[in-house]
Design a protein around this nucleic acid. Structure first.
Lengths: 171, 171
DNA sequence: GATATATGTCAACACTACTGACATAATTAC
DNA sequence: GTAATTATGTCAGTAGTGTTGACATATATC
């Protein structure tokens, strides 16, 4: 064995490096989500609303089931968020053309504005980090981040995998 | 202006790249946290317990205030988690040597075991992604991730900044 | 027509976080 | 040395997100 189970004793350099990576993920995600959270709070919404609006914006016409597969939450959890977004005019649904049980989801123009507003600080943050690191680093960043994702969804970020921007086709 | 506010119309390649980075963060964090969550649930604990145990393990002797600065939650929120961890024997506190108002925090051996158990799947995941991407990519990954962190805490991950592994010295 | 699928909904519960208020002990300032 | 400040704890109420379990409707499919 090469290391891998440094029980409790001296941590190898590798182990320390990996633990720093874990910490980096915590700090980055903490700050990455803080800005939109501040925008959402006065609207009576939370992070779940942001995620919902984000994915519907990226995949217009996606179904409720698609969203459940992405978010990995129960339909009861999603429903609370989604019905609020529809009630307040950010999201609308239309029955599927071929399968009329489906509810295809779309952002209204208010929903598009909200999405822009929420993502703006995140885009600024990511954009700044990208610019500072340069294109080669960004490419490496994306490869490592994709490597952290379970194989199923990792495909979304590889050239061969299914695109997610189209009006369907998500798993 | 160079782009930066692609209002609602055609997204530039840059904007698309940035939005993919945002999504990557969502998926990576979702899967990154799922494994320890599954271990925590049957113990009647959650993600907050994991973070607490993680940071105390990395910084033995840190104070409650240090932890509050890192986690960026209120003391009331932390207290619930911390007192449970102490009540159940994972964490212990000792008054500070010079300032006896402080409660220096330490993992018990049960706490160290728990920390190991919780971090194991994360270390495996990060380790696998690191190995697959290679050292140069890892370095770039860390630079970009650090770039996402607010300047205050970014220092923790730069050569010049204060170390966090010592028995104190965290802001 | 029977079964399966996509979705909605009611209810109860757990975890995490927040605000506001108040309390104690120890340190620092005047 | 008394007053103010700091580090920490704690009670109470509220909000957002997620869960499980149960049940309902509409539409497809066999």
């Amino acid at each position: 064995m090469r290391r891998k189970s440094a029980t409790l004793s001296a941590a190898s350099f590798r182990d320390e490096e990996i633990r720093q990576g874990i910490e980096l993920m915590f700090f980055a995600y903490r700050d990455f989500t803080a800005d939109p959270d501040r925008i959402l709070a006065p609207l009576g919404m939370g992070r779940a609303h942001h995620r919902t609006v984000h994915f519907i914006g990226r995949n217009p016409g996606m179904t409720v089931g698609d969203l459940l597969n992405i978010l990995r939450i129960t339909k009861q959890s999603l429903n609370r968020v989604l019905s609020q977004l529809m009630r307040e005019g950010y999201v609308e649904q239309r029955p599927g053309a071929t399968d009329r049980r489906e509810r295809r989801l779309f952002l209204t123009s208010a929903g598009q504005s909200l999405e822009q507003r929420l993502s703006e600080p995140q885009r600024a943050r990511v954009g700044a980090a990208y610019r500072e690191a340069g294109p080669a680093a960004v490419s490496a960043f994306r490869r490592v981040l994709a490597g952290l994702i379970n194989p199923d969804d990792r495909e979304r970020f590889t050239a061969s995998g299914p695109r997610l921007s189209g009006p369907r086709r998500l798993r």
